[in-house]
Design a protein around this nucleic acid. Structure first.
Lengths: 155, 155
DNA sequence: TTTGAAAATATCGAAAT
DNA sequence: ATTTCGATATTTTCAAA
């Protein structure tokens, strides 16, 4: 993971669909070298995948919310089964498992406030392991598409 | 946004770097048609971009946290300036602006717990508009890379 | 939407730096 | 280790049907 790898990763973060040739030119190496570097980054698990970022309203998902969930008892099986089954629901975008008074944050999106409400009533109130949940509507979600490597040593 | 567009979007969500030709074959149309559809999806703003998904530990970002922030007063200028300046910090991955007792959730990652602590002390305690913030360490973040379109009508 | 042809690109091996 | 070159396969791209 040298400076070259970082530069390649940065390019693929900002536009994953540009040609290998363009990336090679921008970072200043031969296309064959670039191709091999990208393959290694993929194989080493540095690059996990390439995904189109899609406008949520265009997918009929105009309303976003964050649901803070408390689960009891907090056994391994119950936690893992909750994570997996919740992530499998169409409305769910991601699941954060965390410390603190809430055990999970579930990022969801739905067609409307009404659909969101129905979804929560159907999928969360019915779960016996869910002790409580609080829902916050998301006005805006700003995401950084190309997080940079952080410096290793000093501060 | 017909069934064909959905199929193309789904392919680009799951692997944004596969060739137009492969996508065309999978969804059962000619490559030229597929190319034109992709261009239109891009121009219409359905597809916002293509981004490599990078392993956070490989970027020296082994520790993730969610910071719930309260801001006062909640004027437009203060809110927007907070969102932008926070997102510009290297450690910040995304900012959720929301309803509820917390005004923002800031998703951050850092080299270590120590770095995270230092970052929070330096960048949040010093802000006069930040009334309070609570930090939760994220054990795991499961993200759905290909959210599907939700059905338009019934429930 | 498709076909077909030209241009651009990806891919690989081998040799060179 | 990386690069350059060359040769081939694949892909993109666009004009025309």
């Amino acid at each position: 993971m040298d400076e070259l790898d970082s530069a390649i990763v940065r390019e693929l973060q900002s536009d994953a669909r540009q040609s290998n040739r363009d990336i090679a030119r921008k970072v200043g190496i031969a296309p064959s070298t670039c191709l091999e570097r990208i393959r290694l980054l993929r194989r080493r698990g540095v690059i996990l995948g390439y995904h189109a970022d899609v406008d949520l309203p265009a997918l009929n998902r105009g309303v976003q919310a964050m649901v803070a969930v408390q689960l009891r008892p907090l056994g391994r099986d119950i936690v893992m089964s909750f994570e997996q089954s919740v992530l499998a629901l169409p409305e769910v975008l991601s699941v954060y498992t965390m410390t603190g008074s809430d055990d999970f944050l579930v990022h969801v999106s739905a067609q409307s406030i009404g659909h969101l409400h129905g979804f929560l009533l159907d999928r969360f109130t019915s779960r016996r392991e869910v002790v409580s949940f609080r829902t916050s509507i998301i006005y805006q979600h700003l995401r950084k598409t190309a997080p940079e490597p952080l410096p290793p040593a000093a501060r």
